[in-house]
C-alpha cells in the first residue's frame, strides 16, 4: 500500500516537473484538492467545453504524428436554422479532407475521397475536443486533481490542472483551463511516468461572438444521404465480465458492423461491441464467433497509449482495445467468461 502510494506521488511530482519543463514556468508540487474542490474544478471545465461558444484552430500531437484542425462550437446550434441544439464542427486542415459535424443526435463524418464526397454516420455523438464527460464531478472518485501555475496558451491566460489517476487503471491528464471561462485550451494525456502520450492545444481561439456563416454549397453537402451506421441491440449475452477495474461501467453494448473491414471478413463482420468507461477512459470489447482457434495476441500503439489483446473465450473471439494502460485491458480480458447457460452463439 505504502509503495503504491509513494509511486503515484512520484508520478504527480514528475508530471508537475514535466509540465514545468514544457511551459517553462516554475510549478510547485501542490497538494491535491479535496474531493469536493476537485469535483467542482472538473465540472467547471467540462461545462465550459459544452456551453462556451468558440472557434479556433488546434493542433493534435500523437507520437510523431501531428494534425491541425479547425473547430467551431456553437452551444445553441446554427442560428440560421434556428435550432437550439448544440453543434460542433471539426475540419482537418492538413492531410485528407475530413470534416466531422456533431449534434446531440449523432455525428456525421464527411470525407473527400477521389473527388467524391462521402458521408458516414458515426455511432456516438461525442464532441471533440470535449475531454471531460458531462458528469465530470464523479471523476473525483478515481482521479485526484492538483492546481498548477498560470500559463499561457493561444494568447490566453490559463490555469494548469493535473488530473492524476489514483490507481494504475487509467492515464493521467494535464489540462490548462482558460482563466475566465474554464475552457481547456490545452490537454495532455500522460502515462504513469508522466510522459505525454497524446496532446492537443489551441493555437488560436476566439471565445464568444457569432461564428462565420457557412456557405450554401457546404451546407448542401451535409444534406446528402449518409451511410447509416448499422446497429442493433444485443440479444442473449453469451459472455460475462467478471471484474471491471474500479469506476468502470458498461456504457454501450450493440451489435454492429465494423468500419473499414476488408474482403472476406466484411461478409460476416457483425460483432458485439461493448464499451466500458470511467467517464474519461474508454475500453472496447468486441465479440464475434471464432472462425478458428485463436492464440492470445497483445497489441500496442507506438507510444503505448492504446493497448489491445485478442483471445478466445469459449467459441468466441474477444478483442479488448482501449486508450488505457495495459493492466486495465488485461484485467477485463482475463475476467471474460462464457455464461454457463449460454448456447452456441452461431
Amino acid at each position: 500500500m505504502m509503495r503504491r502510494h509513494r509511486s503515484w506521488r512520484d508520478l504527480g511530482l514528475r508530471a508537475a516537473g514535466l509540465s514545468a519543463a514544457l511551459l517553462t514556468l516554475p510549478v510547485q508540487a501542490a497538494d491535491p484538492l479535496s474531493t469536493h474542490d476537485a469535483a467542482t474544478w472538473l465540472q467547471r471545465m467540462s461545462d465550459a467545453a459544452r456551453n462556451v461558444a468558440y472557434e479556433g484552430v488546434f493542433v493534435v500531437q500523437h507520437g510523431s504524428a501531428m494534425q491541425t484542425l479547425s473547430i467551431v462550437n456553437r452551444p445553441f446550434g446554427s442560428t440560421k436554422e434556428g435550432r437550439a441544439e448544440r453543434e460542433s464542427r471539426l475540419a482537418a486542415m492538413d492531410g485528407a479532407q475530413r470534416e466531422v459535424r456533431c449534434t446531440q443526435s449523432g455525428s456525421i463524418t464527411r470525407v473527400m475521397e477521389g473527388g467524391q464526397i462521402k458521408l458516414e454516420k458515426r455511432l456516438n455523438s461525442r464532441h471533440f475536443p470535449d475531454l471531460l464527460p458531462p458528469n465530470a464531478a464523479a471523476l473525483a472518485n478515481w482521479y485526484s486533481v492538483k492546481l498548477g501555475e498560470l500559463a499561457r496558451v493561444a494568447g490566453l491566460d490559463c490555469r494548469q490542472v493535473e488530473i492524476l489517476p489514483k490507481d494504475p487503471y487509467r492515464w493521467g491528464y494535464v489540462l490548462c483551463a482558460d482563466k475566465d471561462s474554464g475552457l481547456p485550451l490545452k490537454a495532455m494525456m500522460i502515462n504513469e511516468a508522466g510522459l505525454p502520450l497524446m496532446q492537443y492545444a489551441f493555437a488560436e481561439i476566439r471565445i464568444g461572438g457569432s461564428p462565420k456563416v457557412e456557405s450554401q454549397s457546404s451546407r448542401d453537402t451535409w444534406r446528402m444521404p449518409a451511410q447509416p451506421a448499422s446497429v442493433r441491440p444485443i440479444g442473449i449475452e453469451t459472455v460475462s465480465v467478471k471484474n471491471l477495474p474500479p469506476g468502470f461501467s458498461r456504457i454501450a453494448a450493440v451489435k454492429r458492423t465494423l468500419p473499414n473491414r476488408s474482403g472476406r471478413a466484411r461478409m460476416s463482420s457483425e460483432v458485439e461491441h461493448w464499451v466500458f468507461s470511467d467517464g474519461l477512459t474508454h475500453i472496447s470489447l468486441f465479440l464475434e464467433p471464432a472462425t478458428r482457434p485463436i492464440a492470445s495476441v497483445r497489441g500496442q500503439s507506438k507510444q503505448g497509449m492504446i493497448n489491445m489483446v485478442t483471445r478466445q473465450v469459449g467459441p468466441m473471439q474477444a478483442t479488448i482495445l482501449g486508450d488505457a494502460p495495459w493492466v486495465a485491458i488485461e484485467a477485463i480480458a482475463m475476467g471474460l467468461e462464457m455464461r454457463p447457460d449460454a448456447g452456441d452463439p452461431r
Binding site: 458515426r122 456516438n124 497524446m198 454501450a252 471478413a265 463482420s269 468507461s277 500496442q300
Partner: peptide
C-alpha cells in the same frame, strides 16, 4: 487480426480525431 477496424469502431466512443495510431 486486422487492428484497424476495431480501432475505428472504438473511436466512435473514444477521443479520436487523428487517424488511428500505428499498432504493433
Amino acid at each position: 487480426v486486422e487492428a484497424q477496424p476495431y480501432l475505428a469502431a472504438h473511436q466512435d466512443f473514444a477521443q479520436a480525431v487523428i487517424s488511428a495510431p500505428e499498432m504493433h
